[in-house]
């Protein structure tokens, strides 16, 4: 417990951590201020017009779906697709859409919490992921490089305990900060929506969905934190983690993706970490691959889409992070500390 308290003090005293917290507060303040400045409470006339436009948009979607079905059932010859209508009319079915037009879509200059909460939360999660990765890497990297770990080991000559306490304290602190920041962040925008935007109370489905994204986002923040910590431990320096992240992005996400496209590899997106992060956060992501349709016959409908779902993606993320963390502890246990 003493070691945890000491680590907490060291972590909170780090200039880099303080700087990142200030940046987080700054980003939060700027976003909230610009939202507040750019939003107003809609008038009855604006609301009425927006409801009408949303209803018309919905009717338009239904009409398109019906036209597609009619053409598919009676007029389109076998093996031939219309330029406008897809082979699968369900793409136009309003019931199968992720979301339907609502009045808020037609209220420019009016902040809607229900509509904007997701992108706002994604932005916060992205910042917290960056925060966790950088703080995780610099926390252990600077300590290894400056001799702080050696100093500590002279007092507590138990390597795994010292490193484990550092990681545990780091994860606990980042989690507490992420939970606190995200709750304050969402509450602030909720208040802005109620007082200077489109009011109203979202339903249970909205809160359930937002809560799921929030929970997944927090898991992602913790994984990024552990990843930064593990790579910096393996490389003995903060820059090892930053270099590894930059190298991965350039070499794999950009370079390898290009090569895979050139050689017409099947489903290249499933090999990318970014795809699994998106799948984990959203629950599911769809990718299009032309190669999927090359083997299908002309009569079979082939959309060329494939999906990644959160379950397998979480396994991928856990295996990578867990593997690197275990490797970091194994290496640190035997390493000569010079």
């Amino acid at each position: 417990m003493n070691l945890v308290r000491a680590e907490l003090e060291r972590l909170s005293a780090r200039r880099f951590v303080q700087l990142m917290v200030v940046l987080l507060a700054l980003a939060f303040a700027v976003t909230a201020a610009t939202t507040l400045a750019g939003s107003h409470r809609p008038s009855e006339a604006e609301l009425s017009s927006a409801r009408t436009q949303a209803a018309e948009a919905l009717q338009g979607m239904e009409a398109t779906h019906q036209q597609c079905l009619a053409r598919q059932n009676s007029m389109t010859p076998p093996g031939e697709t219309d330029d406008f209508y897809a082979t699968d009319c369900s793409e136009f079915d309003p019931i199968r859409q992720d979301r339907l037009p609502i009045a808020a879509d037609y209220l420019p200059g009016v902040f809607s919490f229900e509509q904007q909460a997701r992108p706002l939360l994604y932005f916060l999660i992205a910042f917290l992921v960056l925060f966790g990765f950088l703080v995780g890497a610099s926390y252990i990297g600077a300590d290894l490089n400056s001799g702080g770990v050696v100093n500590l080991l002279l007092w507590r000559p138990r390597r795994l305990t010292v490193l484990g306490t550092k990681l545990g304290t780091l994860l606990g602190t980042v989690l507490a900060l992420a939970v606190g920041a995200s709750l304050v962040y969402l509450a602030t925008f909720w208040v802005i929506g109620q007082t200077a935007g489109l009011g109203g109370r979202p339903g249970d489905d909205f809160w359930r969905s937002l809560g799921a994204i929030h929970g997944r986002g927090l898991v992602l923040v913790l994984l990024a934190t552990a990843l930064g910590f593990a790579i910096a431990t393996l490389g003995r320096h903060t820059s090892a983690a930053l270099g590894a992240a930059a190298a991965y992005t350039v070499v794999w996400e950009l370079g390898a993706r290009l090569v895979l496209e050139i050689v017409d590899a099947r489903r290249p997106d499933r090999l990318m970490l970014s795809s699994h992060i998106a799948a984990w956060l959203n629950g599911k992501v769809r990718f299009w691959d032309n190669q999927l349709c090359t083997s299908s016959s002309g009569t079979d409908p082939c959309s060329g889409f494939y999906s990644l779902t959160w379950g397998p993606s979480l396994v991928v993320l856990l295996v990578i992070t867990g593997g690197l963390t275990v490797a970091a502890f194994a290496v640190f246990r035997r390493r000569d500390l010079l």
């Binding site: 003493n2 000491a6 003090e9 060291r10 005293a13 400056s146 001799g147 500590l152 007092w155 507590r156």
Partner: peptide, 29 residues
């Protein structure tokens, strides 16, 4: 370890900490 005091080469400390805070931190750990 609790009965062995040691310095190996020139130990590095947090520049932003005071000397007293540095020692308090180590004492706590």
């Amino acid at each position: 370890a609790g009965r062995v005091g040691a310095i190996v080469e020139s130990p590095q400390f947090f520049g932003n900490f005071t000397g007293r805070r540095t020692l308090r931190l180590l004492a706590r750990a």
